[in-house]
């Protein structure tokens, strides 16, 4: 497997982290958008919003993002079994009926915006989903269609060691998606590189 991205970066960091550090002009607004969507005040829990991110990354076959957000779901109290249900058997997954309807919408957004039907939205509203919850579900799913393409389209380095993703998940829970003030170094979570 490749140990370097398709383009020269100004750092040795893997996956999306290397890309965001390489280009703060675009990386900063992407980070700020993610922080408010996944960590801002919301009637959807952080676990529920991370489930949307993980499902979309899984459907896009982006292994870096799927590993990172699956580890985050688990660190927030989810489980590998829950993830497997969400990927393969949503009807019987251990989430609320409202979340099932929102995850259906997220799956449609992953295909294409025009794949979302009025019936998909009506089903979510019938389970009590608010306009903001529907909005945020669509935008989180769309944002991960950006991330997954950015990470794989530039062929970024993907660590194999599960411990790397556990450490990354820990940062995404304690610090969130904004850039840590001290920066991100190869002696931190990327020490497995």
């Amino acid at each position: 497997m490749r140990s370097m991205a398709y383009i020269q970066l100004n750092n040795q960091l893997p996956g999306i982290t290397g890309l965001l550090e390489n280009r703060p002009d675009t990386g900063d607004p992407i980070r700020a958008l993610t922080q408010i969507l996944l960590r801002g005040p919301n009637t959807l829990t952080e676990l529920e919003r991370e489930l949307i991110a993980t499902l979309v990354s899984y459907k896009n076959q982006c292994r870096f993002c799927t590993s990172a957000h699956a580890a985050t779901v688990i660190a927030l109290g989810g489980s590998a079994e829950l993830l497997n249900q969400v990927y393969n058997d949503l009807d019987n997954a251990a989430v609320s009926d409202k979340m099932k309807a929102l995850l259906v919408i997220a799956g449609k957004v992953q295909q294409l915006g025009t794949a979302v039907t009025p019936e998909n939205v009506a089903a979510a509203k019938a389970q009590g989903a608010s306009d903001k919850e529907i909005h945020d579900t669509v935008l989180i799913a769309a944002l991960f269609c950006l991330y997954n393409r950015y990470v794989d389209g530039l062929g970024t380095y993907r660590p194999e060691d599960p411990a790397y993703y556990e450490k990354l998940a820990s940062r995404l829970i304690t610090v969130g998606y904004t850039r840590p003030r001290e920066g991100i170094t190869v002696t931190g979570e990327a020490s497995f590189h």
């Binding site: 919408i105 449609k108 957004v109 294409l112 915006g113 025009t114 979302v116 529907i134 909005h135 669509v138 935008l139 799913a141 769309a142 944002l143 269609c145 950006l146 991330y147 393409r149 950015y150 389209g153």
Partner: peptide
């Protein structure tokens, strides 16, 4: 990648 987001946001809603 960014327009793969914007397009889905605009049409998904």
């Amino acid at each position: 990648a960014t327009f793969s987001m914007f397009n889905r946001y605009v049409d998904g809603l």
